Simulated assay, not measured.
Amino acid sequence: MVQAYEAETESGDPKDPVTPSRSRLRRLGPFRSWRGDPGIWRRGLVLAGCAALVALLTGLHAHVPNRIGNLGSLSETFLPWLTVVTVPLLLLVALWRRSATALIALLLPVLVWFNLFGGLITDKSTGGGDLTVASHNVNADNPDPERTAKDVAASGADVLALQELAPGRVSAYRDALAETYKYHAVQGTVGLWSKYPLQDVAPVDIRLGWTRAMRSTVVTPQGEVAVYVAHMPSVRVKMRAGFTASERDRSADALGEAISRERVAGVVLLGDLNGTMNDRALKSVTAQMRSTQGAAGDGFGFSWPASFPMARIDQILVRGVEPVSSWTLPRTNSDHLPVAASIKL
């Protein structure tokens, strides 16, 4: 009798018992019928405006000014995440508000995102590469440099570039890699290890006052390749100064100038650029080279931070050669993931 009474008080029909929890769910916005509700088009105009703003910021990111705190470069560093994070949140609110206008508007940022990044989702790798290259920021405070060196060498790379080599630990990397790589050269805090001879090794001035970039000609069985190794200055996000990247930007311009003067037809750049391919501040480099991840990778290939990769700031860029595959390697003791690529000469 008690159960029948409770059912009748909730549903009005003792033959159709409804629990209190189900009744409350039916009264909630997302579970109510939208039919016959004229407000579905009037509600959510603010949400629709937010969706349109996300679409504009994503599609027209190049027009976000850098004059104030380098906001343009900051947004471009994490550009894919702008839509990935905001659209699901706006979608939940639109459903809660029962706004058809907001739901339709959410199609805008989704379409813009797929137009910019949809090509990165599919696997574009092919076979037939002549040379495998790898790059890794090993972290100056790496507690086990020998293990890190061996882990990266296990990738089978013919040419390996390392950045952030602490002066007192270069010998550890040299000893760990000696069995795999017959040739190597270190300039400042960057180094290059190769199974093929190295010629014309020289530092590259990137306007820092100390050496964080180098160049060498790698003599492969298929011909010569100019290989650059670079570690751009770090960037920071500060409350008052914003995205501080002026030092990195100057170094990127200097690196771009050096590469533009390169006379060897095939060029490969390996390094931690502390910026993504979308970042306009790196255009002096990215405008003249292709990303192996964008051309032959599978996915975004995020490399930093290693614990939860959110951006690809470790790059393998090429000019005059054809990338056939690109991938990230398993995590080491560094805060960056190693990256690798196979190229056809």
Rank of each mutant, 00 (worst) to 15 (best):
A4S: 08
E6P: 00
T9E: 12
E10I: 03
G12N: 00
G12A: 01
D13N: 09
P14M: 03
P17M: 02
V18A: 00
T19R: 00
S21N: 01
R26H: 06
R27T: 08
L28K: 07
L28I: 04
R32P: 02
P38I: 04
I40R: 15
R42E: 12
V46N: 03
G49T: 05
L53V: 15
G59D: 13
N70P: 01
L71E: 03
L79T: 03
P80S: 08
W81F: 12
L82S: 09
T83Y: 05
R98Y: 12
R98M: 08
A100H: 04
T101I: 01
A105L: 09
L106G: 07
L108P: 02
L111T: 04
L111Q: 00
L111G: 03
W113E: 01
F117K: 03
G119F: 03
L120T: 03
D123K: 02
D123Q: 08
G129P: 02
D130W: 12
H136P: 00
H136Q: 15
N137R: 03
N137M: 02
A140T: 04
N142H: 09
P143L: 11
P145L: 06
R147Y: 06
G156C: 13
D158R: 13
L162C: 04
L165H: 11
P167T: 12
Y173A: 06
R174C: 00
R174Y: 01
L177Q: 06
K182N: 10
K182M: 04
Q187C: 07
Q187H: 13
S194H: 14
R212V: 12
R212N: 15
M214D: 14
S216I: 09
T217F: 05
V219N: 15
T220W: 13
M232H: 09
P233W: 11
S234Y: 11
V237H: 11
V237S: 07
K238T: 07
R240L: 14
G242V: 02
F243H: 13
A245P: 00
A245M: 08
R250H: 06
A252T: 05
D253P: 00
D253T: 13
G256H: 09
E257M: 06
I259H: 08
R263Y: 01
V264G: 09
A265Y: 11
V268H: 11
L273W: 14
T276C: 12
R280C: 04
A281I: 12
Q288N: 08
G294Q: 13
G301H: 12
G301A: 05
F302R: 01
P305K: 10
L337V: 05
S342T: 14
